[in-house]
Amino acid sequence: MSEIGIYQQTILEHSKNPLNFKSLKTCTHQANGNNPLCGDKVEIFTNIKNDINDEICFQGTGCAISIASASILTKVLNKKSVQDSKNILENFIKMVENKEFNFDLLNNEEKTLLMTFSELQKFPMRSKCATMSWSTFNAALNRDNYNTEAKV
């Protein structure tokens, strides 16, 4: 199977069976994201304890790319420090936007998961589908305000 085929398979797997697809009744940080152009919506929840993302989960609706991206975000950023999470999310968005990026903070499995979205560089109209959950997570990290709306 080609590298592109493996990436497509990963997106399909995560969109059909997303990881951490639930809400948290109590959480320290939360934000909502909405892409009105395509209808994707996401709500990200996290509990930060001792500057570590102790638990990350999401709920939402949208295309396969949007749901898979949120699922992979929860897997990659869980148990990471807030600072490392911000670094990784900035570099993820840079990668999708075809800018210089660095995933040195990640292990090989995590790098492979994020690289799943590297093909979107060829389809800029779909980049917001992949980055919406990451921008929403960033909004959650930057605010302790419940029901914060992320701009995508």
Rank of each mutant, 00 (worst) to 15 (best):
L37G: 06
L37V: 12
L37N: 09
C38R: 01
C38H: 01
C38L: 02
G39T: 09
D40I: 03
D40W: 01
I44V: 13
I44M: 12
I44A: 08
T46Q: 12
N47M: 05
I48A: 04
I48C: 05
N50G: 10
N50T: 11
D51V: 01
I52Q: 10
N53M: 15
E55W: 11
C57L: 04
C57D: 11
C57W: 06
Q59L: 15
G60P: 03
G60M: 09
G62H: 02
C63A: 05
A64Q: 07
A64Y: 01
S66P: 00
S66A: 13
S66F: 06
I67C: 05
S69W: 02
S69L: 09
A70H: 01
S71W: 02
L73T: 03
T74H: 02
T74D: 05
T74L: 02
K75D: 14
V76I: 12
V76F: 02
L77G: 04
L77V: 15
N78F: 08
K79F: 13
K80H: 14
S81Q: 04
V82E: 07
V82R: 06
Q83T: 13
Q83I: 10
S85P: 09
K86Y: 10
K86E: 14
N87E: 14
L89Q: 10
L89P: 00
L89E: 11
E90S: 14
N91Q: 11
I93S: 01
M95R: 00
M95G: 02
V96F: 05
V96D: 03
E97F: 08
E97A: 12
N98P: 00
E100N: 11
E100H: 06
E100K: 12
E100S: 13
F101R: 00
N102T: 05
N102P: 07
N102W: 11
F103P: 00
F103N: 08
D104A: 13
L105C: 04
L105W: 10
L106M: 06
L106I: 08
N107I: 07
N107M: 07
N107D: 14
N107R: 02
N108T: 12
K111G: 03
K111Q: 12
T112V: 11
T112P: 00
L113M: 15
L113K: 08
L114M: 08
L114C: 04
L114I: 12
T116L: 05
F117C: 10
F117G: 10
F117D: 10
